[in-house]
């Protein structure tokens, strides 16, 4: 027997239905608008020149995006390369603590997650850039500086997720390993990290998403050079920072404004790819 929905039920159902569907509609609309803008751009300026081009001179009609894609990848790569070992260190140290202490560390980290990115940008300007300037003799504004700032910025998120991954490993497994004469290091490497490799991969993907999408902290220290960077201490730009820079240089109406949609669409596509990848890794987790 199917029960009749009451008035309140129907009303509520309609309201939440509208809420859920409008999120989906807005999400798809974002994609459609960026896609539309990209299409206009590609029709006007061609695809190969921009997607694979090395020269970015909007006033000359040249829109090579490769330097920015390279910048985004290199900067996020540095960030992950620096942050993953540190986050793992923290997680390895914390899993052996009592549950109460672990909880305290979690609380502190979730506070640090909320630090605004401009604060990290400020820190980059007052510490990282001068340090690189001092060591390398260059200006200090560089991909390396941006990568290091991002590493610190994603560290709380990455640590928190890594701690969650490692603490989910069952205590019987850990004791089983120790009882077989495994040293603490062996237990960590061959059991705990091996068991949690997919959750850890998941954490890294999430952190990569944050790094790729960050704008302000990167913009403050990267130097904003639109040429293909020739080294880690050379200045550069990323997709996100270039959107910020060009919003004032290429306002709507100006020829080439839609290159911004193109860059945004590339970012959106990267995020979508990561979401699909995350679905896969979640299925692999024990």
């Amino acid at each position: 027997m199917k029960r009749q929905m009451g008035m309140g039920d129907q009303c509520l159902y309609r309201v939440v239905w509208v809420g859920a569907f409008s999120l989906v509609v807005l999400g798809i609309a974002i994609f459609a608008i960026l896609f539309w803008g990209t299409a206009k751009f590609v029709l006007a300026h061609g695809l190969n020149q921009s997607l694979l081009g090395l020269i970015y001179e909007p006033t000359q009609g040249r829109f090579g995006l490769l330097p920015f894609m390279a910048g985004s990848l290199v900067v996020s790569g540095i960030a992950l390369a620096v942050a993953i070992p540190l986050a793992l260190s923290l997680a390895v140290t914390v899993v052996d603590m009592t549950p109460r202490r672990t909880e305290t560390v979690r609380q502190i980290l979730s506070g640090l997650v909320a630090i605004p990115s401009v604060v990290f940008g400020w820190w980059g300007l007052s510490v990282v850039v001068p340090a690189i300037r001092w060591i390398s003799g260059h200006s200090g504004f560089s991909l390396l500086a941006a990568g290091l700032v991002l590493a610190v910025m994603i560290l709380p998120t990455l640590s928190l997720l890594s701690i969650n991954a490692l603490t989910r490993v069952r205590v019987q497994w850990v004791e089983g390993s120790l009882a077989l004469g495994a040293t603490p290091d062996q237990t960590m490497g061959r059991l705990i990290l091996a068991v949690s490799r997919f959750p850890l991969l998941e954490a890294s993907i999430i952190a990569l998403g944050r790094a790729l999408g960050e704008t302000m902290a990167v913009q403050m220290v990267i130097g904003g050079r639109v040429l293909l960077p020739h080294g880690l201490v050379s200045p550069g730009a990323t997709l996100t920072t270039q959107i910020l820079t060009d919003m004032s240089l290429l306002p709507p109406g100006v020829s080439g404004h839609h290159v911004l949609d193109f860059m945004a669409l590339l970012l959106l596509a990267a995020m979508y790819g990561m979401v699909v990848l995350l679905e896969r890794t979640r299925r692999m987790s024990p």
Partner: peptide
């Protein structure tokens, strides 16, 4: 010591 002393637990503790 632990290599010389094997242990089996109540909860199944086979590794995944």
């Amino acid at each position: 010591l632990r290599r010389a002393v094997g242990m089996v637990f109540q909860q199944p503790s086979a590794f995944p």
